[in-house]
């Protein structure tokens, strides 16, 4: 099956600001794809190009095999979009706003709308003027999730939701995945991406720096270890592949490259381990890794 989204060497400038600089992004059908990058990296710009709202300066962009700038209307039949910052008309109610968006898509399944209203705990009879940012976002989310589409394009859709609603959102995305939908989820909430996404693309300054499955990205990286031993655990310091060693009371903390982990464990075992906690790298650490030190690192799946 051909890719749902295929972006190659996409560039886009606003005046002298180069927002996208030969960016690549590919989504296969049925995958939930995390799109990560710091503020101003170009996530929203990429998504607007994918929706046919912005015209690409250079590069190839295809959504369902078609050029979004030329075929926007036809493509929008098959996708739904939620922006990070939702602005609504102040004098209508949330329920009316959802129906209005639905009417622009050719109607909606009322029971599905009611179910989502309940799950997201949104009062549809209130005027949108009284809604918080999170509630306005729920309106756009419900309108998108209630529509019967193949592709969901979500640009930091949960930035205003509380943790409880965040869970509801994750549940909805899992259901969408089970229903065979493809999801592009741009986010800065790493836990969300970790728990939801099959694949991740990380961009910085308009360029793709890394893309692959979470497993592929992780195995290149390090494990954080916190250990308490009878002997002096700090002696692992001399091993190759052990970094950032610190002492905190009788605990010793260090990071270790994944291929050096067996050697480190071998060194610790004879010292009498009383407790040991090891955690896989979070995407936060991947972020720091990529955006902290300017150099782009070889990627898990493809290299950019």
């Amino acid at each position: 099956m051909s890719a749902v989204i295929d972006v190659r060497q996409l560039s886009k400038s606003f005046g002298s600001v180069r927002a996208l600089d030969e960016l690549d992004l590919t989504l296969e059908p049925g995958e939930v794809h995390g799109f990560l990058g710091p503020n101003g990296a170009g996530k929203s710009t990429t998504i607007r190009v994918l929706l046919g709202l912005l015209r690409a300066d250079a590069g190839d962009v295809s959504v369902f095999g078609q050029d979004p700038w030329q075929k926007a209307v036809g493509l929008h039949n098959r996708l739904a979009y939620v922006p990070g910052d939702v602005n609504l008309w102040p004098k209508i109610t949330g329920g009316e706003a959802i129906d209005f968006f639905a009417s622009l898509r050719g109607g909606l399944d009322r029971s599905r709308k009611d179910e989502l209203l309940q799950r997201f705990d949104l009062d549809p009879t209130k005027k949108t003027r009284s809604y918080s940012k999170g509630n306005r976002q729920k309106v756009a989310l419900i309108a998108a999730l209630a529509s019967d589409v193949e592709l969901l394009v979500l640009d930091e859709p949960t930035s205003g939701l509380d943790p409880l609603m965040e869970l509801v959102f994750q549940e909805c995305i899992r259901e969408a995945k089970l229903a065979g939908r493809t999801v592009l989820l741009s986010s800065h909430i790493l836990a969300e991406v970790e728990s939801l996404c099959d694949k991740v693309t990380i961009i910085r300054q308009g360029r793709t720096v890394q893309t692959g499955t979470l497993a592929e990205l992780r195995h290149l990286h390090r494990t954080s270890v916190v250990v308490v031993c009878d002997g002096d655990a700090a002696s692992v310091e001399s091993l190759p592949g052990v970094h950032d060693i610190r002492r905190d009371g009788d605990r010793v903390l260090f990071n270790v490259d994944d291929d050096a982990l067996p050697a480190a464990m071998g060194r610790l075992l004879p010292l009498g381990i009383r407790s040991l906690v090891s955690t896989p790298p979070t995407l936060e650490e991947l972020f720091v890794h990529h955006y902290g030190n300017g150099a782009a690192v070889g990627a898990g799946g493809e290299q950019s």
């Binding site: 607007r48 929706l51 709202l53 926007a72 209307v73 929008h76 039949n77 739904a80 979009y81 922006p83 910052d85 939702v86 602005n87 609504l88 008309w89 968006f101 622009l104 898509r105 050719g106 756009a140 394009v153």
Partner: peptide, 14 residues
């Protein structure tokens, strides 16, 4: 206000 973007992302002509 960004509402046009929200509208145009639906099945709405340019």
């Amino acid at each position: 206000t960004g509402r046009t973007e929200l509208i145009r992302a639906n099945i709405v002509g340019r």
